[in-house]
Amino acid sequence: MAMGKNIRVLRDIKARHGVQANEVARRAYLFVARNETLPPQVRHQAQLQLNSFGKYTRPTTVKNRCTETGRGRGIISEFGLCRFQFRLKALRGELNGVQKASW
């Protein structure tokens, strides 16, 4: 079961590790920046710090891609597969509890 580890997947993995590494620091700055009880100067400084974080530390750069092919669209999030891989696997009976509809 070899996953198509193309550059987009590798970039996404990089982003995921970056997000994990910087999450606590980002949260702390977010808390300060969004806290209205703190002086505006402090909040502004915190916001500047937040802006200085790298691209691959933001949670929004993380995209759930197909774990089989790396496709970025048409992902069925419950299985982490794109729609075609989902169909193939479901028909092969590799997904528990998934059945082809028929009525």
Binding site: M3, E23, R27
Partner: peptide, 13 residues
């Protein structure tokens, strides 16, 4: 914290 679950998305191989 979302980091631990975010990192685990792709299966280890």
């Amino acid at each position: 914290l979302r980091g631990p679950s975010v990192v685990k998305y792709y299966p280890q191989e």
